[in-house]
Nucleic acid binder design. Structure first.
Length: 425
DNA sequence: TCTGGGGTCCTAGGACCC
DNA sequence: TCTGGGGTCCTAGGACCC
């Protein structure tokens, strides 16, 4: 038995926590560079602003309709997300944080008399203790609980909770019939049209597809989807998450560039963040890559990447940056307008296993010196703030840095931004 | 003028090896 | 003129998820 807890319009709800005056008004949250709409309030949705819409195409609508815009404040959303996780983990440790705004709970160990009532109580508690509205879907498989939560979000009469566990087969079939294939977990922009071409238009139709045909059309994931829609679980709860295989950091630039020092500053900054992430997880990378690309929406789109291997796995910002910048310099073309840089770290190994297993032919002394150096580096930044100490290459240019014209305060993560409460008598 | 970031998994062609 | 089978690695791209 699964519950899916799905936060409603999560980023907008986080902004409204500290701006209750925005309740009932159209609000959107924009991605990095104020590029796309990544969260919208129901009022903004009613105005016809689609998810993922490029903001520049809707500036007129924003202005005419008084839509309130926010640049994404992802530190804030991450902090609110953790509060929700804490609360859910207190309900049951069998919790899987699936994304920043969704968690699966395994209910099979809990004594629940009535799932609908239980869901309503969880919903009220999150609203009261964190302030975020959620939709809850209850079902025997993850796919069905996702489907139920989607209906809980959309159907105003559902009071935010839909239970497909204690229900009749006819009711369950009605929910499946009212779910278009494109809204099923695992069906994207390519499988949707392919299924419709087969005459399958809704989840009920897909649940009745012969497994063999589902396998031919969609591979093993398709067979699993059909089974899950019929109540046979294929996906377990993963309480510890999957082992991370890559760490990636990338940014679109605030403006396109033909200057190598700008690229160098971007690579140095992205690598510094990725390497800090690596060290925080006590990992080392055997390999790294960079991707440099032009604007894919303009003619002549170009992407160039290079992969590098390290004889001694490393989390050293300096050596990673040095190798990546050198390799980028070798392929840099001054006649291209570069638009985005990404850094990928992969081949991840635990820093602990490195010291005990593999190491006879590797430079253990240098590796240990590097780790000691970086521990000091991280300790300084932990104590005095991020980027208190940093590599000079990061400051070669700020021209690559994304723009964010509508950033809200860091209400919960910066001392200077913490709101003041006044008691009005 | 202006179109996100962070993941996983799979495929396919070319270079190279035997 | 005629040209195998099996493998790896690299690069590029595309599918899906949030």
């Amino acid at each position: 038995m699964f519950a899916l807890i799905d936060c409603n319009n999560f980023f907008v709800s986080c902004e409204r926590l500290f701006r209750p005056d925005l309740e009932g008004r159209p609000v959107v949250v924009l991605s990095s560079n104020d590029g796309c709409v990544v969260s919208r309030s129901n009022e903004a949705r009613t105005l016809g602003i689609p998810m993922g819409a490029p903001a520049f195409k809707y500036r007129q609508v924003f202005k005419a309709q008084g839509v309130v815009q926010f640049s994404g404040n992802f530190e804030l959303y991450g902090d609110i997300s953790q509060r929700i996780t804490h609360l859910l983990t207190a309900i049951t440790p069998r919790t899987e944080v699936y994304s920043v705004d969704e968690s699966f709970l395994d209910l099979s160990q809990l004594a629940i008399a009535d799932y609908q009532t239980w869901g309503g109580a969880v919903r009220q508690r999150l609203l009261r203790e964190v302030g975020i509205p959620v939709s809850i879907g209850l079902a025997g498989t993850k796919t069905l609980s996702k489907l139920a939560s989607e209906h809980a979000k959309r159907d105003s009469g559902s009071s935010g909770v839909i239970d497909l566990i204690n229900t009749t087969p006819a009711t369950r079939a009605a929910y499946l019939l009212n779910t278009p294939v494109k809204d099923i977990w695992g069906v994207g922009r390519r499988l949707g049209p392919r299924l419709r071409a087969q005459g399958v238009h809704d989840a009920l139709g897909l649940s009745r597809m012969p497994p063999r045909l589902a396998g031919q059309l969609m591979g093993v994931h398709g067979r699993q989807m059909v089974a899950e829609l019929n109540g046979t679980p294929c996906h377990r709860l993963e309480p510890f998450g999957k082992v991370r295989q890559t760490i990636m950091h990338g940014r679109m630039f605030g403006e396109d560039t033909r200057q190598f020092p700008v690229i160098e500053a971007a690579i140095a900054s992205l690598t510094a963040r990725a390497a800090a992430h690596l060290r925080a997880d006590h990992l080392l990378a055997r390999s790294a890559a960079f991707y440099l690309r032009t604007n894919r929406h303009k003619p002549g789109y170009r992407l160039v990447s290079r992969h590098l291997d390290f004889t001694t796995p490393t989390a050293d910002t300096g050596s990673l940056t040095g190798r990546l910048v050198e390799a980028a310099g070798a392929v840099f073309n001054p006649s291209l307008d570069y638009h985005k840089a990404d850094i990928l770290l992969y081949g991840l190994v635990s820093e602990h296993s490195l010291q005990t297993d593999l190491f006879n032919n590797l430079d253990l002394a240098e590796s240990e010196a590097s780790q000691t150096r970086l521990r000091a580096f991280d300790a300084i930044n932990d104590r005095y703030g991020r980027r208190t100490i940093r590599y000079a290459a990061e400051d070669l240019s700020a021209a690559w840095q994304p723009q964010h014209r509508h950033r809200s305060p860091h209400y919960t993560t910066a001392w200077d931004d913490i709101p003041t409460a006044r008691i009005i008598q």
